[in-house]
Design a protein around this nucleic acid. Sequence first.
DNA 1: AACCTTCCCTGATGGC
DNA 2: TGCCATCAGGGAAGGT
Length: 307
Amino acid sequence: MPELPEVETIRRGLLEQIRDARIDDLEARACRVFKVAPERLLETLPGQRVRDLTRRGKFLVAHLDRHFLVVHLGMTGQLTVRDPARPDSQGFIRHPVTGLQRARQHAPDPHTHLILGFQDGRHLLYRDSRKFGRIDLLSRDPDALDRYFGNLGLEPFSEQYTPEAFLKRLRDRRTRVKPLLLDQSVVAGVGNIYADEALFAASIHPLRRVHRLRKWEKLALHAAVLEVLRQGIDFGGSSLRDYIDSEGRRGSNQEELKVYGRQGLPCAACGTAVAKIVVGQRGTHFCPRCQPRGGRARRRRRDAGLV
DNA sequence: AACCTTCCCTGATGGC
DNA sequence: TGCCATCAGGGAAGGT
């Protein structure tokens, strides 16, 4: 479940490894992740160099000489660099004492759908067991990306992500706040893990209706989203299942999570057992005490025995 | 338009 | 040990 921090971690590592690398050949196995026909990749990509690698929400964009190669990792997508001259490894190994891990590379397997071969002999592998990802190709027009990402919401860490713009996107919304955070047309890049973490950081119950939130609560949420995404990037992403970076390394943010995956365990802030419910078909974790259903005012009245 | 549900897909996990 | 049911979820598609 790569979300913004995981995709950003991959982007940074990958850019360092493949900037200016020239694509010489490629192998694409027919698969539903290809929104562009693999044959078209075959006839357009060879000869082009990777000039830049950018991110929009959870999308990665490789800027080639004449095209944009757009990649979304879905649930289980992995992008890794492999040098056929070096030994492959299997599984994930972390040092039992130091926690350190060496960069590792993995050989293609039946879930590897795309292999880009670079001039220097290295490969870029796209692997995706559940095939929820997507690979697309755009001509490199000046406004191609704006058009392609036209429905995407605010980009965190960009100039457009202001409190005012955030409030405006939430205006007149009556849905529950958790599904709203997952809606990529509101804020781009937040997924299930960081939505739960942001709601905890902002002390907001996931089932609260957006239009019932106080303004200061919305502002707290605006800041909390940035805060949890920033921390996710700082720790190299959250590796709960399939996520690895471009060098095959796991992140460590899973150890920093306050509520996600911690159902039954004590809340770090108050000791109450973290609860897990289902909201919009998504597992949702929260602290019943730190994130009261009725907001802070109701909680205070209840604690005082007035309700 | 907003909101909600269903579906896609496969590996891991747990019960029997 | 094997078998089957269940769960994980990003986003497209469909219904209201």
